[in-house]
């Protein structure tokens, strides 16, 4: 997958919560961390997102905030 987004992170769908318009998808990463994504409900259905499915979280570098303790 050749994509301009700098961050393509592999994970497994842990949970999908469908809302009226959007769906919240929680992806668990191999290290135990989680990434939450909000996508449209249609997309979630089109991609067949179910628990346990292998997915990539794609995040553009310009959208990543950095914080410290």
């Amino acid at each position: 997958m050749k994509i301009s987004a700098r961050n393509v992170i592999r994970g497994k769908v842990k949970k999908v919560v469908h809302g009226a318009v959007n769906s919240e998808v929680i992806i668990s990463l191999s290290g135990g961390d989680e990434i939450t994504s909000i996508i449209t409900k249609i997309s979630a259905q089109n991609l067949g997102l179910t628990e346990g499915k292998d997915v990539y979280a794609v995040i553009k570098a310009s959208n990543v905030m950095i914080a410290i303790d």
Partner: peptide, 16 residues
Amino acid sequence: PEDITLSLTRISSSAR
């Protein structure tokens, strides 16, 4: 412009 992602091939993603 920051919200647009480019790819060389067709990808299947959640982006509508």
